[in-house]
Amino acid sequence: MSTQTQPRTGSNAQQQQALDISTLPVEQLSQLQQRLSQELEHLSNSHARLRAAQARFKDCIRSIKDGVQGKTAETPLLIPLTTSLYVPARPTKTGTVLVDVGTGYYVSKSTSAATTFYEGKVKDLDKNLSDIERAVGAKNGDLRVVEDVLRGKVLAEQQQAGQGGGGKDGEQGIPKGK
């Protein structure tokens, strides 16, 4: 959930950038580019993790629907002891499930209440996901602008070096000069 703070810091950097991006030297521009790519990667990772979490909650909803609701105590279930070892068992209590609400707390809920709980989680994650998507879009835009400016600067420098035949970046100029 710490990802929620990301968009805020992102828009901050954006504001600072808008002021002086074209006046920055090439070196700082490429640093900026690097930082933006890193932030973008971080955001995409968070996005993927949230998606995975959402999929898990959706799995829980499906499990309640398919495995618990409408089944009686007679219905045999295969209970996984490890990921590859199962034992057949029958639920002693149908209609209620134990839900992990976080930080080590479990609450006994009716199946419908549990479904509502998980649906709420999925909806919360949806909101976070769209926040992150927006942030990724904005960052992508920033990155493109920085890359454009950087490319323009490098090209201009190369041209200058080619014409002047001197300076510290004059390597391309040397063959012409000789």
């Binding site: 609400v101 976080g102 930080t103 080590g104 707390y105 479990y106 609450v107």
Partner: peptide, 19 residues
């Protein structure tokens, strides 16, 4: 999130703690 969840619970609901 847990605090919020507890607020919405009925007084007599069963809460377990993993120890």
């Amino acid at each position: 999130a847990v605090q919020k969840e507890f607020k919405g619970l009925a007084e007599d609901s069963d809460i377990y703690r993993l120890v």
